[in-house]
């Protein structure tokens, strides 16, 4: 395959860019992801995960089964913000302004 072959279609990342991250010491899918944005787009690595694992396996001379997958996170497929919010009760989420005022009140 040509080095310019696109592996991550969402973020348009090619083989050369992934190999470059490996040359810089990246070992896992997520190491490569944070350097190149591979897998950060709308499909969340559903398309590029296995091609990238193969490139990692080749580069490190490992078996494919010894190369881990990316970290999966909620939601596994896109979901409307409004749908996510419907069940929400009390909050652990703070307000930047409220917090500033609270700390300022301590008169340090």
């Amino acid at each position: 395959m040509d080095k310019s072959t696109i592996v991550c279609r969402c973020e348009e990342i090619n083989i050369d860019e992934i190999e470059n991250a490996l040359k810089n010491g990246a070992q896992t899918f997520d190491d490569i992801k944070r350097l190149t944005r591979t897998g950060m787009g709308s499909c969340q690595s559903k398309v590029c995960l296995h091609p990238v694992r193969e490139i990692i396996a080749d580069y490190h001379n490992k078996d494919l089964q010894d190369v881990g997958i990316s970290r999966m996170r909620i939601p596994l497929k896109p979901i409307r913000m409004g749908t996510l919010a419907t069940e929400s009760k009390d909050s652990n989420v703070a307000s930047v302004f409220g917090e500033s005022v609270e700390e300022g009140d301590e008169n340090r």
Partner: peptide
């Protein structure tokens, strides 16, 4: 880990 409760609260904050 990310947890559903905080994810839901954050979605509410967003809205």
């Amino acid at each position: 880990r990310t947890t559903l409760d905080i994810v839901q609260q954050t979605a509410k904050m967003a809205i």
